[in-house]
Design a protein around this nucleic acid. Sequence first.
DNA 1: CCTATAATATGATAAACATCATACTATTGG
DNA 2: CCAATAGTATGATGTTTATCATATTATAGG
Lengths: 198, 198
Amino acid sequence: MRYPSEQKAETRRRILHVASRELRKRGPAHVSVGDIMSGAGLTHGGFYAHFGSKDALVGEAIAAMFEDVRLRTSELDAALNRADDGVRAALFNYWRSYLSADHRDRPERGCPLPALSGEVGRMGGAAADALSQGLGEMTARMMRALERLEYSNPDARATAVVAQLVGAIALARALGRTAESDALLNNCYEDLVGRYGS
Amino acid sequence: MRYPSEQKAETRRRILHVASRELRKRGPAHVSVGDIMSGAGLTHGGFYAHFGSKDALVGEAIAAMFEDVRLRTSELDAALNRADDGVRAALFNYWRSYLSADHRDRPERGCPLPALSGEVGRMGGAAADALSQGLGEMTARMMRALERLEYSNPDARATAVVAQLVGAIALARALGRTAESDALLNNCYEDLVGRYGS
DNA sequence: CCTATAATATGATAAACATCATACTATTGG
DNA sequence: CCAATAGTATGATGTTTATCATATTATAGG
């Protein structure tokens, strides 16, 4: 127990933080271990003192991404835990920020699902497990909101809403920063509001 | 004009065909030029007699994928060009097949959008152009169907439906061949039918 | 048949990569 | 202040990759 200075744990967190951003932004296949380590101010070799493999890192990083993003669902979570009727407004706010140009343009800060579901579907392993869990939690949150609003079939509805949100951001990113892309996001938001407006 | 035997053009088509399947199945980053060429029964070197670069191939291959997939929208297209009221049934059939486990499990034969929008969003270039065009056509087809069914805001509705379809397959692939994945697809189909049932 | 050339193959090059073995450095308990 | 060791760096290895230069093969016109 020579180094109780917490140094390794902090370095490990730093690597995970860099990885969680870089993986969302550029995709697992285009981010090298060396990229991540130098992003954390280190050199490549020390990596294997912290993680068993690149794939293991990706799995842990995905879990970290959902943690990171959870901060931005706090308004909705708070509304779900209150008895008043602020749920609809909180839900709309969440949808609006999810379907924003900012979310489209900053994948490194955004939801892992549109950024990574394609690649992770092919990778399997820990990455797929982490993504599945995050998807389950997001769907459950959406379902609770729809239950609170007393809609029928909240499960099917929640699943469909999540699919629409994720698909919209994935497609908007493929279109780039264009007018069509802005319109796609607005259309998807309007459609949701049309379906779930008061 | 020594080789008028159409041989080069046929080889080129063969390369494109292999590429269109392999790229959807494994993703552009995990398919090498050598893989594609040997899949076409050739060796790697001759590739550059047919395409200027791997990226150029990806762009052309995406266009080929949409061609490939168009065959499976023929029922809907036919209904749109008839005056009778078979549009809703054709639309539902299309949705059902899009949201099928078979589509999830065979990306190499399926829609390019869930398979490639993640990667292509990062690549830009010809690939992004091809994907954007295909997305526009798919959305337009959906919009015509919704117009025929006399829904308001067919543009926003069509965009939202496409996002939901694409997101559902992308997420279902991330979940793999599991019960949750099957449920996700069914939920998304039920939701659509609930919204657009007669 | 033979030769010019189109189509494909072979081989080379240089870069990028994950991973591992080993070396160095900084810290802390004695 | 010193030695044991935790944390990090350096350097190497073997593989894979896109791309290019050159060689080989096959065909068609004379």
